[in-house]
Simulated scan of single mutants.
Amino acid sequence: MPTLPQWSGVFPAVVTQLHEDQSLDLPASARHFEALIDSGISGLIVCGSLGENQTLQPEEKRAVLKCAIETARGRIPVLSGVAEMSTQAAIQYMKDGEKLGAAGFMVMPPMVYKSDSRETAHWFRTLAAATPLPWMLYNNPVGYHTDVTPEMFVELADISNLTSIKESSANPRRITELRNLVGDRYQIFTGVDDLILECSILGIDGWVSGSGIAFPQENQKLWQLTREGRWDEARTLYRWTQPLMKLDTHIHFVQYIKLLCQETGLGREWVREPRLSLAGAEREQVLKIIRDALAKRPASE
């Protein structure tokens, strides 16, 4: 088996750009992908939770992935989220993604049905066997109510193409627990934006960022400051970004981040039903958070 890549750095999980009528806006997606690549990201993840995976039709998911791969032109790896409701649908999507040229996948637990630990392990093992490509396991017990514990990652360590973990339990202790149990077996990414400094100090390899897709230059700079151990500067920049990053932790995070992208000129706020775009007092409150932060945006270097 060939040596699999070791992913690291910022791999933003991107929104799926839509027209107001809820149809795909692939040209807008391509422009957004290009802006992210220009900022210096190390990889790109489409069709995750923020990408509204579960509301997209099968052919739409494949179209978004194809658009990202064609835009990237091999400059960075492009991964796709796998968030399906059945094992067979997930396997088919992974096979199609491989044919399109995906570099790998970010695999979520089964959607809708809340699997127990035996079923969860079976799900991930079955999908791993369906592709030779590397993949990242997305652990988000807060959002999906399925927890892959550090002890379970010990049991899964024999899966050769499971290379990375997106750790989104919102418990930074997990970073150290994982390192103590499995060492450097996996590349560990944080998936909670407003825990980036805590997780960086504890020792991570990468960041699956969400809100930072709306301010990619500053997001990339923050990551670089953590890599260089320039903590005073990192704290200063983080204090500016934190109100914006916190938008990624709400049940309406898709609507919030799409509105944030609209305010920074990197997208539109339109979402796919059953989600509805923000309205009334909630929209005004989120806009105030965004605009207050952008009024204090650090000067570009």
Rank of each mutant, 00 (worst) to 15 (best):
M1T: 05
L4Q: 04
P5G: 04
W7H: 06
W7F: 14
V10T: 12
F11W: 07
P12F: 11
V15F: 08
V15Y: 08
T16Y: 09
H19D: 14
D21P: 02
D25L: 06
L26M: 11
A28W: 07
S29N: 15
S29C: 14
H32E: 07
I37T: 10
I37V: 15
G43D: 13
G43I: 06
L44R: 00
G48Q: 08
S49K: 02
G51P: 08
T55S: 15
Q57S: 14
Q57F: 09
L65W: 11
E70P: 02
E70I: 09
A72F: 07
G74E: 09
R75Q: 13
I76D: 07
P77Y: 02
M85Y: 13
I91N: 02
G97D: 12
L100H: 13
V107H: 07
V107Q: 08
P109N: 03
V112Q: 13
Y113N: 11
Y113H: 13
S117Y: 15
R118Q: 14
A121G: 14
A121I: 14
W123Y: 15
W123R: 12
F124R: 03
A130D: 09
W135I: 07
L137W: 04
N140W: 10
T146H: 01
E151Y: 08
M152E: 15
N161R: 02
T163G: 09
T163L: 09
E167S: 03
E167P: 08
S169P: 07
S169F: 10
A170L: 09
E177W: 00
N180Y: 06
V182Y: 01
G183P: 02
Q187A: 12
F189Q: 04
T190S: 07
G191M: 01
V192Q: 05
L195C: 00
L195V: 02
E198H: 05
E198V: 08
G203N: 04
I204A: 03
D205S: 13
G206H: 02
S209C: 12
S209N: 13
G210E: 01
F215G: 04
E218D: 15
N219F: 01
Q220T: 03
L222P: 03
Q224P: 11
Q224G: 04
Q224F: 00
R227E: 08
E228T: 07
G229I: 00
R230P: 01
R230C: 03
R230A: 05
W231T: 04
L237Y: 03
L237R: 05
W240D: 07
K246Q: 12
K246I: 00
H250Y: 12
I251L: 15
V254Q: 11
Q255W: 01
Y256F: 09
K258R: 05
K258G: 08
K258H: 06
Q262A: 14
G265N: 10
L266P: 05
V271C: 06
R272N: 08
P274N: 05
R275A: 14
S277F: 00
E284Q: 15
I289P: 01
I290L: 00
A293F: 08
